[in-house]
Amino acid sequence: MASTTTDHETIRQWVEERGGVPATVESTADDSDSAGLLRIDFPYGSRNDRLSTISWEMFFEKFDSEKLAFLYEDKTSENELSRFCKFVRRDD
């Protein structure tokens, strides 16, 4: 079952437990000081070349300014650790 949160520590912990890092799609950033489209980059053998790793500070600055929420799943239906996540608009 999926959950939604805006809590920074919950998001960071969920991502790091799965070996992920905060990232942005390189071609969508306005400049080097801001993030473009947010993604979580997971280690599936090699990192995605179109993604650029960013700091958690930069990630959460964009996350909050875009009024995003984090939709995620803790376990798969087979009770395995899930990597399912996506960004959705906040309800507020």
Rank of each mutant, 00 (worst) to 15 (best):
D41G: 04
S65R: 15
A2P: 08
F60A: 04
W56I: 10
S77F: 06
D33G: 13
E73N: 07
M58I: 13
K75F: 06
V88S: 02
R47G: 03
T76Y: 07
Y44W: 14
S82Y: 02
D31Q: 13
L71H: 05
E9S: 09
R83C: 05
N48F: 11
D91T: 12
E66P: 07
R47I: 10
D91E: 14
G20W: 03
W56G: 01
C85A: 05
D91G: 12
E61T: 15
D33S: 14
M58D: 08
R50S: 12
L51F: 09
I40M: 03
E80C: 05
K62S: 11
W14T: 01
S82E: 00
L71F: 02
F84W: 09
E17G: 05
E61P: 07
F87M: 10
R12M: 05
R47W: 08
R12W: 03
Q13Y: 10
C85G: 02
A29Q: 07
M1T: 11
A2M: 12
S65W: 09
F87H: 05
P22E: 01
A69R: 06
G19M: 08
E73H: 03
I54T: 02
E17S: 08
D92A: 10
P22Y: 03
R83P: 01
M58V: 14
E78M: 08
R90H: 09
W14G: 00
S82V: 05
G20Q: 02
F42L: 10
D41V: 06
F42T: 07
T5A: 01
A35L: 04
